[in-house]
């Protein structure tokens, strides 16, 4: 069972849900932080890191001894990452998408590839014995986010439960994080911004055809429009986390909110069972 936790809007509580759900489960779980631009799960789970691995992507290297300046590399590159300038070839690694087009098309074999580091992936174990942990960390200044996310996702536990903390938004990084997961929890807040971005997130998961449900965080803080939307769209509200200064303070320190109440821990356990039922129900639906 792979559950991703997403939201259109940032700061609605994705990481809170991922950390607290992981810590509430009485079974082995693997938690993956796929918000590789700003990974925060480790601040709440304090994992012991055991391995650290670079995420690399190929970029072109040109052998000017072999190059005949034919410009085929420049013509195939849609990202302006390689250019023939006078009697030399210039590459722009930060624009390169690592598609391999230039090396594949070069008739002289003058373009080969070398590695560029995009970020790192760390793996370890969580605060409880049966918790696996992995996170990606994009190097500051790099833009190629999806390859780092895919590398984090190589640590999915295909036998057990995996929780994926996704980045905000609706574009390629989120798609990379949610792809091939069994269920998406959409975390929102009952405010106009929360609702606007939730609608975008719902469109995204529907397009990807992944079963999904809502968690309304900071319930009571704003208005009721999100409930009306959930009802109208037949979106199950799986959990409400109350708007409570005590919860916000616990979060600010990096504490798990379930440590503040047993009631919340039980609610997270129920959440998991509800999701299992929804996934099965939807899989069994004609």
């Amino acid at each position: 069972m792979i559950i991703s936790i997403a939201s259109g809007k940032g700061g609605t509580g994705k990481t809170t849900v991922a950390a607290n759900l992981a810590a509430s489960l009485d079974q082995a779980v693997t938690v993956l932080d796929c918000d590789v631009e700003e990974p925060n799960l480790h601040l709440f789970l304090h994992p012991k890191i055991h391995t650290r691995e670079n995420v690399v992507a190929p970029i072109p290297r040109v052998d000017m001894e072999k190059c005949t300046l034919c410009k085929r590399c420049m013509e195939i590159c849609r990202f302006n990452a390689i250019a023939v300038a006078g009697k030399t070839v210039v590459t722009f690694p930060e624009l390169c998408h690592s598609c391999g087009g230039c090396s594949a098309i070069c008739p002289e074999g003058a373009v080969t590839e070398m590695e560029r580091v995009l970020g790192i992936v760390e793996t370890g174990t969580g605060p409880v014995p049966d918790m696996g942990f992995a996170q990606g960390l994009l190097d500051v200044g790099q833009v190629m986010v999806p390859p780092v996310i895919r590398k984090v996702k190589s640590h999915i536990d295909t036998q057990g439960i995996t929780l994926i903390d996704a980045p905000p938004g609706t574009s390629c990084p989120v798609i990379a994080a949610m792809k091939d997961t069994d269920f998406v929890i959409l975390v929102t807040e009952p405010t106009p911004f929360g609702l606007n971005d939730l609608k975008l997130a719902v469109e995204t998961v529907r397009m990807m055809d992944i079963p999904h449900g809502l968690i309304i965080n900071r319930a009571g803080m704003g208005d009721d429009a999100v409930y009306a939307y959930a009802k109208e769209q037949h979106l199950p509200v799986l959990l409400e986390i109350p708007f409570d200064r005590k919860i916000a303070e616990a979060y600010s320190r990096g504490d798990l909110i379930i440590s503040r109440s047993n009631d919340l821990k039980e609610k997270f356990q129920t959440l998991y069972h509800d999701i299992c039922r929804l996934v099965d129900a939807q899989r069994c639906a004609p």
């Binding site: 918000d35 700003e38 500051v140 980045p167 938004g169 600010s252 990096g254």
Partner: peptide, 28 residues
């Protein structure tokens, strides 16, 4: 936008200044 990836880099090039809005939380 949030984050530090490609849209953020695109949003700051040649700007006079950036104002970072943070909050007093471990994540912030």
């Amino acid at each position: 936008p949030p984050g530090i990836g490609c849209p953020v880099i695109a949003s700051m090039g040649q700007a006079s200044a950036v104002l970072i809005v943070t909050e007093p939380t471990v994540s912030g």
